[in-house]
């Protein structure tokens, strides 16, 4: 085994992840390799320093209220969906009514009516085109069924 391969054993040794045979093998290596021994000593000091850092436990009230923090998001999520869907429906309805009024109004010039209809047709074509493109790429996506 090379020193590089012993470095993997070194991490396992520090973290108590080796079996007895691997520990003995590593012990034998560092007895005969001063570079690995020096590096091992440094890593041991580093591990003891890192282990001394503990993350502060928050107050118990945080854990008691934790679920309500998650639950509130469900409620807000439902609120957002309802608001967005009805908002979009109302805007579309309002626009439809406004266009209908304009088209039916005999005082509005024909050229303006044609421009409004062309504008709406343009938006519709763009929308259909983007949706078709999305659908095409979604069907071609090789990873769409990958689940973790």
């Amino acid at each position: 085994m090379t020193c590089r391969q012993y470095k993997d054993l070194m991490m396992g040794y520090l973290d108590d992840e080796l079996d007895e045979a691997q520990r003995k093998e590593f012990d034998r290596h560092i007895e005969s390799c001063p570079q690995c021994q020096a590096e091992f000593e440094q890593f041991k000091k580093l591990k003891s320093l890192t282990d001394s850092v503990k993350l502060a436990e928050p107050e118990d009230i945080i854990w008691e209220k934790y679920w309500s923090g998650v639950y509130n998001r469900f409620e807000r999520g439902i609120g957002w969906i309802m608001m967005s869907v009805t908002g979009i429906a109302l805007i579309i309805y309002g626009l439809f009514k406004a266009v209908e009024t304009l088209i039916k109004d005999p005082n509005v010039e024909v050229i303006l009516k044609i421009a409004i209809l062309a504008f709406i047709t343009g938006i519709a074509i763009l929308f259909v085109s983007i949706m078709r493109e999305r659908l095409y790429y979604w069907k071609k996506d090789r990873y769409k069924d990958v689940k973790r």
Partner: peptide, 28 residues
């Protein structure tokens, strides 16, 4: 597990270098 071991090795090496730069010498 091999990838974890390898990442831990490089993570600790980087951590050691940062600490040595902060302290201006080897770890005591």
């Amino acid at each position: 597990k091999g990838t974890v071991t390898s990442r831990l090795y490089y993570a600790r090496k980087e951590l050691k270098e940062i600490l040595e730069r902060q302290k201006g010498g080897r770890l005591q």
